[in-house]
Design a protein around this nucleic acid. Structure first.
Lengths: 107, 107
DNA sequence: TGGCTCTATGGCAATTATACCATATCCATG
DNA sequence: CATGGATATGGTATAATTGCCATAGAGCCA
């Protein structure tokens, strides 16, 4: 087969890594609905504010969200319109896993 | 907003984590084309056989691939048909990042 | 200005992930 | 049965991730 350069897989993996944490998935879920500030997101997540801030930095660095400052607050929003494709795939896998699990339990 | 249970995000994150490594992305890419044995995948990846075997175990545990034994060899194949959605999203993000990067360089 | 809120970052400890080596297991074959 | 190939797994050292604390900086208001 045609081997693609390692660099491409590393770039892809970086984005995938940003998506590979429950807190960040929760953040994306919330931000998909509307732009939110760090204070609200911190309350939503229920972790330290610095922790949330770092998670947001990871998402931003991956290019999944963008930030905007207003007054003394920072607002974040989702920048890509393809998250449905991502979440759809994940959900599909989880559903298949459940099905397989039930089948393995003996119908 | 309606808060979804932590457990759901953890389940999603587990699948996403399985996708968050360059070697595993390469493996999926190869397996999307056709079923392959560990020996061929090991050669393709260029890492230790045990390393590849463990990566395959991660993918299998996440429900992304399935294995089949034939003679003394193991063959793996992709079990979900939704990877295009996942890869499509990743590629879309990377493309947007490049565009933004170019724009930031000053057109 | 002083104090307060909001956010980002450095530091650090604990956990988790990764890669290789060695080795056990399974299977085919001489 | 002994040998060798293919694969999976335990062990271990190293690297990366994560979360919280402390703190710095920016903006707002009395």
């Amino acid at each position: 087969m045609k081997v693609k350069p390692t660099q491409l897989y590393e770039a892809r993996a970086k984005v995938a890594k940003a998506l590979a944490h429950p807190t960040r998935l929760l953040l994306l879920d919330a931000l998909q609905e509307k732009e939110m500030c760090v204070c609200d997101l911190t309350e939503l997540v229920g972790a330290d504010q610095s922790t949330v801030s770092k998670h947001l930095a990871v998402l931003k660095d991956a290019g999944l969200i963008a930030g905007r400052k207003e007054r003394s607050m920072s607002f974040y929003r989702v920048t890509c319109n393809c998250l449905d494709g991502f979440f759809g795939c994940i959900e599909s896998v989880l559903k298949e896993n459940l099905k397989a699990q039930r089948a393995a339990m003996g119908v």
